[in-house]
């Protein structure tokens, strides 16, 4: 292969330009990565399990989660809808979680009943330490798939969103 100045320059600027572009791309990608989340990640103490009555769901702001009691089974349920991330409130009158954004409905155990959510509500593991409930915020358990309906019961009453 002939190697002269013209060829060198012709190839050189392309290679150089390519490298520069790659470096710029990599730098931007790296630079724009999110910083480590400042939010709560550790273990969250929730107090005595007896605080949470059957058939209720209690919101715990520190962990942005609901502690629900489905016939004696306790859950730490994430407030974030697996569909598109709206906050899902618990509807007292129907005894279900009802998402205001696109109408997904979940039972008190967080299981999917209807609506566009691809699965049930996500959860955090709950353990009992020295008589106190502890939720591990660092661990996310994906919500149960469609079709799981262990805690499904007929609605207690009217839904919160009907009729506005």
């Amino acid at each position: 292969m002939k190697f002269d100045r013209r060829r060198l320059l012709e190839k050189g600027w392309k290679i150089g330009g390519g490298l520069l572009a790659a470096a710029a791309g990599w730098t931007s990608w790296d630079l724009l990565q999110p910083l480590k989340p400042a939010g709560a990640t550790g273990k969250l103490k929730l107090g005595s399990p007896s605080k949470f009555e059957p058939g209720t769901a209690t919101f715990v702001n520190a962990g942005r989660l609901w502690v629900s009691n489905a016939d004696g089974h306790l859950f730490a349920i994430s407030q974030k809808c697996p569909h598109l991330g709206c906050r899902v409130p618990f509807c007292e009158s129907s005894g279900r979680f009802e998402c205001p954004c696109h109408g997904s409905v979940f039972d008190i155990g967080g299981e999917w009943i209807s609506g566009p959510s691809p699965r049930g509500l996500d959860q955090h593991p709950l353990t009992l330490e020295d008589g106190e409930l502890v939720a591990d915020l660092g661990v996310h358990i994906k919500g149960p798939d469609h079709g799981a309906a262990e805690y499904l019961s007929p609605p207690l009453g009217p839904s919160c969103s009907e009729g506005g």
Partner: peptide, 27 residues
Amino acid sequence: NPNETPEPAKAPWYFVGLQELLSRFDP
């Protein structure tokens, strides 16, 4: 307020068509 989703939570109007589609089909 991250702790309260307003009812209803709508996207801007030029995206509500998409939101409508989302309420019917898999995301």
